[in-house]
């Protein structure tokens, strides 16, 4: 297999390996910062949706529209809107934050709505004030659904960051554009594999975190 030989040769170079590590770290940074920011934003927006029916319809509609904007367009249009440099990684971060927030708002709102009415009623009746009730009852109970959304968000972010390579900030995506320009498969294969492995590892960590946060969700009936 020439491909295997190519890959071995490609990886044989210490400079390449260092560059790969840089790209990987870039990729992690570009995909996970938006994820964390989005979770916070989505929880706040989801809360608004949950409390106010009007906001709900508007935000859900908006988040659907966000998805119609091609990621490439969003990456490149942000500099024009907020005045960052075209090559600024912030563009990718902001764009992915917009996407991921749009992705998460709906599940968060639904998870909050799915908290049984009798549970929130019981909390209110025991004298929980709204903020405390939200933080200690409704939010923890939404974690399983939120976690499912975050997992999808992390996977799609990790895969989307690559598109940023077309505007010069793509983490591992740079391997695809490099490989394509040079008609060279090795970096492309390595890029795909590293992206998959990264997605898998992050997903695993997210599952561990979720399990840590929701011991109650995995107890069986007696």
């Amino acid at each position: 297999m020439t491909a295997v030989g190519d890959i071995a040769k490609y990886l044989g170079d210490a400079g390449t390996r260092a560059a790969l590590l840089d790209m990987l770290l870039d990729h992690v940074y570009l995909s996970l910062v938006p994820l964390v920011v989005s979770v916070v934003l989505a929880v706040l927006l989801g809360l608004l949706c949950h409390r106010f029916r009007q906001v709900n319809a508007t935000l859900i509609g908006m988040s659907n529209i966000v998805y119609t904007i091609p990621s490439l367009a969003l990456f490149a249009i942000i500099p024009a809107l907020i005045g960052t440099q075209v090559l600024d990684p912030l563009n990718v971060i902001i764009a992915l934050t917009v996407y991921t927030t749009a992705l998460l708002v709906r599940p968060v709102a639904e998870a909050l709505a799915a908290v049984p009415a009798h549970v929130t009623a019981a909390a209110t009746a025991m004298g929980f004030r709204p903020l405390r009730r939200f933080l200690t009852v409704e939010l923890p109970l939404s974690v399983p659904v939120l976690a499912a959304g975050v997992r999808v968000g992390s996977v799609s972010n990790i895969s989307l960051v690559s598109v940023g390579a077309l505007i010069g900030t793509g983490g591992l995506g740079t391997l695809f554009t490099d490989g394509f320009r040079q008609r060279y498969l090795a970096p492309i294969i390595i890029g795909i594999v590293l992206t998959l492995v990264l997605a898998l590892v992050v997903d695993l960590l997210l599952v561990l975190l979720r399990n840590r946060l929701t011991p109650w969700a995995r107890v069986g009936k007696p």
Partner: peptide
Amino acid sequence: SNALRALPTLGLVTF
């Protein structure tokens, strides 16, 4: 299905 989502489209297309 989640693994599929992780496949970068640009990488797949160039590959």
